[in-house]
Design a protein around this nucleic acid. Structure first.
Length: 462
RNA sequence: GUCCCCAUCGUCUAGCCCGGUCAGGACGCCUCCCUUUCACGGAGAGAACCGGGGUUCGAAUCCCCGUGGGGACGCCA
């Protein structure tokens, strides 16, 4: 029996972006769905462009997303080492096989892979030079998503650089053989590489793995595929912005794949259960940050209170929210928790939190001028402020229900409605036009601060 | 330029394989409802089968050609 072995093989030459994450995710999902093995292999054969910092980002982002690997750096496994820079011996061994089979030759100091067939010269317009081509039989790529793809591979290519380092095409195939990879799930941009790779598999006398070329993710604005330089492309960025990893995973799983029903938000176990290669689309998908944000909100809303608080606290620490609000020592934990809980059902993302809660931390919170104009623009705000100021001196602020009853009684006594007090009260105590229920704000802030703020606004109008 | 992949609302997509439903859902946008502001939620509107041929009683669905989009064409991966 052959159990599934898939690999994600990033190259640490740049940050980990949405496209990489989606490829990693699809491999991971397929491994989990089939009960197979997910291998992480680092393709660091380009010494000049690799960096340990990028490598750290890959590990960190994958862990954050929950894409744990069964074999690879830090996880061990029977097919290691899992960094190509440490596998020189393996490549030498396989290179000998190719040499013995007469499939290599030296040119310009490099080792080339020799295709079989009659050679001829032709002028290449794109490269603007004469190149040697080979009359070869078409190569068939058996693709789980696209079916049978036929391509002509008609030029020899370098497999070992003149500096002695083996090239991607070579090490990729060697390692897929050596690590007994059964399914190669990678982006469609590799489709034209796959004919080279199949030629190599054949030269080694090995049956190629099952390919699955997944559609690419296109950038949101403008033409072309998403690259690490595009806005919102980096996984790190979502981590920093306080996105929930499960939301990011759920959203990107929907890029190029769909679960079959109308349900889009689903726990990872359901995605694993439903995911399969034939269900992957053939056409490219455009990234949409609005839908991503919406998915994140759905997850945020559904979070148990203690998990929301934990996530928000991480965000606060990372962004030094209290320090930036001018608070010298952190407010009491219970108070912070209460404020966060008030905010959870109202915000769409954690990044809204600092602005949404600033007035809870300091007396120097900013004022939204539009909200100010609106709240002061109708009725008699000065009178309302005065009435509220008097009311708050003796009102029962213990519970939301009590405060609501008190405010309603006050309004009724003046022949007015709750709404006539709400806007001006909110402006006075928060500086904003939107936020949690005003009754909850009064309760959490407490009599002294509410009274002071009401008084301050009243004074500024006088 | 050559080769490869793809083509349903603005976007992600269901339907296509096994031709026959008002072409369904989601995001966004707009309207209304809920309401203490905002957000959530509820209801609704608007919005698509790229074009042309063919096959067929009948085509989003099968075939061909265009067009459009994407990718590849490195001693990068």
């Amino acid at each position: 029996m052959s159990t599934v072995r898939v690999r994600f093989a990033p190259s640490p030459t740049g940050f980990f972006h949405i496209g990489s994450a989606r490829t990693a995710l699809f491999n991971w999902l397929y491994a989990r769905h089939t009960g197979g093995t997910f291998v992480l292999r680092i393709e660091d054969t380009d010494a000049a462009r690799n960096s340990e910092a990028f490598l750290a980002v890959i590990y960190d982002s994958m862990k954050w997303l929950g894409l744990t690997w069964d074999e690879g750096p830090g996880a061990g496994g029977d097919y290691g080492p899992y960094r190509q820079s440490e596998r020189a011996a393996v490549y030498r061994e396989y290179l000998e096989k190719l040499k013995a089979a007469g499939r290599t030759y030296e040119k310009d100091g490099a080792t080339w892979f020799r295709l079989e067939g009659e050679r001829y010269e032709v002028y290449d317009e794109h490269r603007q030079k004469t190149v040697t081509k080979v009359k070869t039989a078409p190569i068939v790529i058996d693709d789980a998503i696209r079916g049978r793809v036929e391509r002509i591979e008609d030029e020899d290519f370098v497999i070992v650089r003149s500096d002695g380092n083996p090239v991607f095409h070579f090490v990729n195939v060697v390692d897929d053989i050596a690590m007994e990879i059964t399914h190669v799930i990678r982006g469609e941009d590799h489709l034209s590489n796959s004919s080279k790779h199949v030629a190599l598999f054949q030269a080694f006398g090995v049956k190629p793995p099952q390919f699955a070329h997944i559609p690419l993710i296109l950038k949101q604005n403008g033409p072309g595929k998403m690259s690490k330089r595009d806005q919102g492309a980096l996984i790190e960025e979502y981590q920093t912005r306080g996105y929930l990893p499960e939301a990011v995973v759920n959203y990107i799983s929907l890029l190029g794949w769909n679960p079959g029903g109308d349900l889009e938000k689903m726990p990872i176990d359901d995605i694993v259960a439903k995911f399969d290669l034939p269900g992957v689309n053939q056409s490219n998908a455009r990234f949409d940050d609005k839908k991503m944000a919406h998915m994140n909100m759905l997850y945020l809303l559904a979070l148990p209170p203690e998990r929301f608080i934990a996530a928000a606290r991480v965000y606060f620490t990372k962004h030094e929210v209290f320090a930036k609000a001018g608070v010298t020592s952190d407010p009491p934990a219970a108070y912070v928790d209460e404020v966060l809980l008030l905010s959870q059902p109202k915000i769409k993302g954690l990044e809204e939190l600092p602005a949404y809660t600033s007035y809870f931390w300091t007396e120097t919170y900013p004022t939204d001028e539009k909200a100010r104009a609106k709240a002061l623009g109708k009725g008699d705000p000065q009178a309302r402020l005065a009435e509220l100021g008097e009311w708050v001196q003796s009102a029962d602020l213990a519970t939301d229900a009590g405060i609501e009853a008190g405010l309603k009684a006050l309004a009724e006594s003046k022949g007015l409605g709750f709404g006539d007090y709400q806007a001006v009260a909110r402006l006075a105590v928060t500086g904003l036009g939107a936020g949690p229920s005003i009754t909850a704000i009064f309760r959490v802030l407490g009599r002294e601060r509410v009274a002071a703020r009401l008084g301050r606004l009243a004074a500024s109008l006088g």
